[in-house]
């Protein structure tokens, strides 16, 4: 633990205590020095232990040379090999990635359009419009899942199309719930935008379109990248909605993992899960990075 917590003014020792504090190496516990109270530290440590133990166990056992995930029997890659040779698993993985890529592209475009639209225009019924846009985010996933399932069955959406098109129904559903998220992230970036920049470009002779490309989009770039990465992980990670829209031949990795887990718990599942964890954690970390970047270079005021 560092020396007296200088970041929060409250945590500085009060004048009475400071005399005592100076004599020792560590200053006395300030009244609001909560992080240095043992019971709070214990709670936090326990929480993090509980949060990480299951995941670390799962990852560790994907490398364990034993079918029964109980004791450590040595390091192996064989379950990764097995997973790699499991065609249905690889198919599911390929499906997941293809869906995620297409969904990311389209939902990023739609999300950016909505964000700019809501930021720029005032119109009657805007609050209602925004409410509907937020609906895919707030309603329980299962409600949206069954709605998509019923919809595609009702309109008779063909699900025996050749490969990339066979994924169309899942992709459409993914886009529907991803793009409002993208819109939120991009809109957060737009809040800091100085509209005089836009006016200045027009004043200098740029058309509406030119202004969008030269001024607004470059400004939005970090937000767009963050939004795209979030859309990617949302799609890659989604289980519930995919579970309801997937056909027998169009299974994604989470759905495949679910069926494998229901069937039996094997280290193969751990291996597949570890790969998925790795991809989503990296993508999300990048998204966070870009969002931080977006905040760092705020507003771009002149």
């Amino acid at each position: 633990m560092p020396q007296s917590n200088t970041s929060t003014p409250a945590a500085r020792p009060t004048s009475l205590e400071s005399g005592v504090g100076r004599a020792r190496r560590r200053p006395a516990l300030g009244p609001l020095d909560y992080t240095r109270r043992w019971w709070l530290r214990l709670i936090v440590a326990l929480t993090f232990l509980l949060l990480y133990a299951p995941i670390l166990t799962l990852v560790a056992f994907s490398f364990n040379d034993s079918r029964r995930n109980i004791v450590w029997r040595g390091f192996t890659f064989k379950y990764y090999e097995k997973a790699w040779n499991n065609d249905s698993l690889i198919d599911a993985f390929a499906n997941s990635l293809s869906i995620a890529v297409i969904s990311t592209v389209i939902s990023t475009i739609l999300g950016v359009l909505v964000a700019i639209f809501l930021w720029r225009f005032r119109f009657p019924g805007k609050a209602v419009y925004e409410g509907f846009m937020a609906l895919p985010i707030v309603i329980p996933e299962i409600c949206m899942g069954v709605a998509m399932m019923a919809f595609f069955a009702r309109v008779g959406w063909p699900n025996d199309l050749p490969w990339p098109l066979s994924l169309s129904s899942i992709t459409i559903a993914h886009i529907a719930f991803s793009f409002p998220f993208v819109a939120i992230i991009v809109r957060a970036r737009l809040v800091g935008f100085n509209r005089e920049l836009e006016d200045a470009a027009k004043d200098l002779g740029a058309s509406e379109w030119r202004t969008m490309c030269d001024i607004v989009l470059p400004y939005l770039k970090p937000g767009i990248v963050a939004g795209a990465l979030i859309a990617f992980t949302l799609s890659l990670d989604d289980f519930v909605i995919t579970f309801f829209t997937a056909g027998p031949k169009t299974i994604t990795l989470p759905v495949k993992i679910f069926s494998m887990v229901r069937f039996s718990v094997t280290p193969e599942v751990n291996a597949a899960s570890t790969v998925l964890i790795l991809i989503t954690v990296i993508a999300t970390a990048l998204a966070m990075r870009f969002q931080a970047l977006a905040r760092g270079t705020k507003d771009g005021r002149g």
């Binding site: 949060l51 990480y52 133990a53 299951p54 995941i55 166990t57 799962l58 056992f61 995930n69 992980t233 990670d237 289980f239 989470p254 993992i257 679910f258 887990v261 718990v265 599942v269 899960s273 998925l276 964890i277 989503t280 954690v281 999300t284 970390a285």
Partner: peptide, 18 residues
């Protein structure tokens, strides 16, 4: 937040081993 980025299904599954 890191655990929170991980697929919810996988996290649920991870609980079983524990």
């Amino acid at each position: 937040m890191v655990p929170f980025w991980i697929n919810i299904l996988i996290r649920t599954y991870a609980l079983i081993a524990v």
